[in-house]
Design a binder for these strands. Structure first.
Lengths: 249, 249
DNA sequence: ACCTGAACACCGTTCAAGT
DNA sequence: ACCTGAACACCGTTCAAGT
């Protein structure tokens, strides 16, 4: 990094919100908004749409710059006019995904509302597990998903949490939802390929009974005991978080 | 998958618990425990150790079968005598990692103890972030980490949760800890490469103020508001979970 | 049983050149 | 400004052959 201080700006970034890109149609005199230089041959939206489809159908691992290029009828390097690198393309696929499920009717009571939003958040991603693997790489980039944060924070404030506490409550709920989905997905995958390493209970030998008596006892029933209703867990967490409110006066 | 029903068993699996592998030293008569066929040239433990070192020093993405082979002075395909595939090697690197932090003194009170164990779990992985990326691929494979599950479940039972509830409590805590660590790591990484996409607050334009008033208001202070003490959050969660106990009689 | 070498079917990205 | 083609430095894994 001795002399590499000049950063290349991505020349034609893609608008993550899928709005019309100005793209050579501007004022009638043809100057304002007109792109300079060689006209585009590729459709930026098509690039992202293709990427999204590949991920959706075959998983994140199936996504490659070469594959997208092939499918949009171009060469790998042409894509780099539109995205800085593969990571950026991945993030762009997130936009608009939060509208997959219609925004639900929410209860009026702040506590119940908070739980309902968290459950919705969970259900949304449960339906599109690929989103999980992309989300690790950065923050939420889908503006249409922000209403959920807004709602949860608003509810927390309504129940007497401070501003910081309310933001923390949102994060805590999100972190749980995320973690839960990751492990649910891992379990589903393990179930899909049997003979693969089994759940940890198989590791327990007779010698462990002394050190891990409770686990040893529960091991045979672990699979069923493990299953929970996310809503119940979210309810418990929300109640725990709300119990930190300073008493209303 | 029409005719591919016969599964090759991995011939010489590596013991995840780092115990002495029998390896050609058996009964004095030289039969029991003796390996048949050509003797091994590679040390199974060295393979795993090398993999662990690479991941630890340069991250999971730096791990490749070719790289490990090179560093143990062999060829890529020789590794497949010891592991079924790259995934299995990855899982094997996990063994023993939970002893990185000494087992702490725990409070007697079940609630406090539960919190302390959860905090310990968090601190352990915080110190070895690479573990996170490997854990997604499966369950806990480090037997030495199971005492944490045992403790948490035991505490939950002591406070009056049912068996299923106690197991759920453990899972909920673990899912939160995992999610929290993933996003903390993501934030750290974002901070390390600035100019990269910023936090979501930068997405908010004037037009959003109407729809997202609270977020818009908090946005300028988001970075500081966001920071929380994990222990506080874990405490709230534990209290929420324990509040589900049937009242003690 | 264990190990090698060549081969297959891929990667992301840089770089120089063309339009 | 946008796109191409060749090249660089890699991947995981299969397969046939050797010891």
């Amino acid at each position: 990094m001795a002399d590499g201080e000049k950063k290349k700006r991505t020349p034609g970034p893609i608008d993550p919100d899928n709005r019309e890109v100005p793209d050579r149609r501007g004022a009638p005199d043809g100057t304002a908004g007109r792109r300079r230089g060689r006209p585009r041959r590729l459709d930026p939206q098509a690039i992202v749409a293709t990427a999204r489809r590949i991920i959706d159908e075959e998983g994140v691992d199936a996504l490659s710059m070469r594959r997208v290029a092939r499918e949009v009828g171009s060469t790998p390097m042409a894509l780099y006019t539109y995205v800085r690198d593969k990571d950026e393309l991945l993030l762009l696929t997130l936009a608009g995904t939060s509208t997959a499920l219609p925004r639900p009717q929410l209860p009026e009571d702040p506590r119940d509302r908070m739980i309902a939003v968290a459950v919705h958040m969970h259900g949304l991603i449960r339906r599109m597990p690929w989103v999980l693997k992309v989300l690790v790489r950065g923050d939420v980039t889908d503006k249409k998903a922000l209403w959920m944060a807004e709602e949860i924070i608003e509810c927390a404030l309504a129940r007497g949490l401070g501003e910081a506490q309310a933001v923390h409550a949102y994060r805590t709920l999100w972190h749980f939802v995320y973690g839960d989905l990751v492990f649910t997905a891992a379990r589903d995958q393990r179930a899909a390929e049997p003979d693969r390493r089994p759940s940890f209970t198989a590791l327990l030998t007779g010698q462990d009974a002394a050190e891990l008596p409770r686990l040893t006892e529960l091991a045979p029933r672990w699979e069923e005991l493990q299953r929970y209703d996310v809503e119940e867990q979210l309810t418990a967490i929300v109640d725990g978080l709300l119990s930190r409110a300073r008493p209303p006066r």
